[in-house]
Computed example of a mutant assay.
Amino acid sequence: MGMLVATSVIVVHLVAGLGVFWPLVTVAGYGAGVLLTPSRPAPAIKRAPRVELEQPGRLRQRVRDQRRVLVKNQAPDFVSNSLAALEAALERVLDNWDYLVDFPEHQVTVRSMIRDYIPSLVQAYLAIPDRDNARAVRDVTGSFDLLRGEADSIYEATIRNSLNRLEDHNRILHMQFGRLPLEGDGGDGGGVDKHAPGAK
């Protein structure tokens, strides 16, 4: 609207002449047009819904529920035991969940295993009329074993990371204080502490 008013003023000046003050009239017209134009409301910003990530307690319950589904549907013991072994492997990982804070990709993997892969395997297996079929049993237990191997790998990575951190702390202590008091000469505890009073 402001540009429209200012343009109109310029056109009028060119046709009829507004005198030496035509620039001021143009600016005033532009300002009036801006003030009289209703402001458009700012578009509402849509915020993505917050996704609540399930914590270890809820993840444990999901695995237990799936094993109960197998038992309730009278799956062969071999299948139930295979899922129980996977559950035990996941329990070790969930018990050390806080150590995976620095490795969110492992947490994503574990959540996917529990929320997606295990339920899909259970439902696909239960959809088979003959649950004692050797091929069906072999396929579902093989899949459970594959997931268990991945869970074991994540747990071992957690242990390695913890040991590496302990080793780093030990190295820092050695650099800071030299030989630690637990280090004796020959292991007999008879060594002289160089920090002791009177030691040379």
Rank of each mutant, 00 (worst) to 15 (best):
V51K: 08
V51A: 15
V51E: 08
E52F: 08
L53V: 12
E54S: 12
E54M: 12
E54T: 06
Q55E: 13
P56K: 04
P56A: 09
R58A: 11
R58V: 15
L59C: 01
R60V: 07
R62W: 10
R62N: 15
R64Q: 14
D65S: 07
D65F: 14
R67W: 01
R67P: 01
R67C: 01
R68V: 08
L70Q: 02
L70V: 06
L70S: 03
V71M: 14
V71T: 11
K72C: 08
N73Y: 14
N73Q: 12
Q74T: 10
A75I: 02
A75N: 05
D77N: 04
F78Q: 10
V79M: 01
S80A: 13
S82T: 04
L83M: 04
L83E: 00
L83W: 05
A84Y: 12
E87N: 14
L90T: 07
E91M: 11
V93T: 01
L94V: 07
N96L: 11
N96E: 07
W97A: 02
D98R: 08
D98P: 03
D98G: 08
Y99K: 09
L100F: 05
D102N: 05
D102A: 07
F103W: 05
F103E: 04
F103R: 11
P104L: 13
P104C: 07
E105R: 12
E105G: 05
E105M: 04
H106I: 03
